[in-house]
């Protein structure tokens, strides 16, 4: 988007530095829930900040990390009221306020020091709004995490072929192999390929729901988020 690559933080196995997890976990008092929030929202927030405030990779990372640290210090997560807004919206608005304040302070400092703020170029390459990017990254991260869960479940249950079929077909970039080709490759019947895919997709959906359940305030919000995810 801006010529420098996105951060790997929030991506997969090394989603966030372990020090950050422990900082957040100990401060929030609910390690699992907090870890889930960070796992799911780190990357969408980072992308949102990059796009909305035209920050480079490192600046966006610092702001994202700063947001989580500030949120914990100020009991931000405890102040969430589900009757007023969904958690995702609450989080995005808070990020926007936080980043805008930081951005303005930075600009003031630069102006005071006689340094012109140079806006990064090429930020208009995408036609999506920062809010749409936030939503899309949220969807993407949900699926990334659910795929990790699926992979772990397959490994634990010895369902290696099921995973390989799913990986080869549903995670394929470009042209997908045919069911017949997959059946030959793994020495199974073609009907088994469709059954494996149906099983893996069903489990994937379950893991997506589970991930969402960990970051929503109740059944109603969960249902609304599920609708937002699939439509």
């Amino acid at each position: 988007m801006w010529g420098d690559p996105d951060t790997a933080i929030g991506g997969n196995r090394d989603r966030f530095p372990s020090t950050q997890v422990s900082l957040i976990a100990s401060a929030a008092g609910e390690p699992l829930a907090m870890e889930r929030v960070v796992a799911l929202y780190w990357k969408p927030i980072y992308k949102f900040i990059r796009f909305k405030f035209h920050k480079d990779n490192e600046a966006a990372k610092d702001l994202t990390q700063g947001f989580f640290a500030s949120a914990l210090e100020r009991d931000f997560f405890q102040r969430f009221d589900p009757s007023k807004a969904g958690f995702r919206t609450y989080l995005r608005l808070a990020v926007e306020r936080f980043a805008a304040t930081q951005h303005e302070a930075e600009n003031r400092q630069k102006r005071g020091g006689g340094v012109e703020f140079a806006e990064l170029e090429d930020h208009s390459a995408s036609t999506a709004s920062p809010e749409e990017i936030f939503l899309q990254e949220w969807r993407r991260q949900l699926f990334v995490l659910a795929i990790e869960d699926l992979r772990a479940a397959c490994a634990a249950a010895g369902k290696h072929t099921e995973w390989l079929v799913f990986e080869a077909y549903d995670l394929a970039e470009g042209e997908r192999p045919s069911y017949a080709e997959l059946a030959r490759r793994h020495g199974v019947a073609e009907t088994s390929v469709t059954n494996y895919l149906a099983w893996a997709r069903g489990r994937l959906r379950g893991f997506v729901t589970g991930r969402l359940r960990g970051v929503t305030s109740g059944e109603r919000e969960l249902r609304e988020e599920m609708r937002r995810l699939w439509t």
Binding site: R151, C154, L171
Partner: peptide, 20 residues
């Protein structure tokens, strides 16, 4: 099995369709 998932928009869209 090792995984390093980077989902493109097209794969994400496919997953949203088939998982539903």
């Amino acid at each position: 099995m090792d995984l390093n998932v980077e989902l493109s928009d097209s794969v994400l869209q496919h997953l949203r369709e088939v998982a539903d």
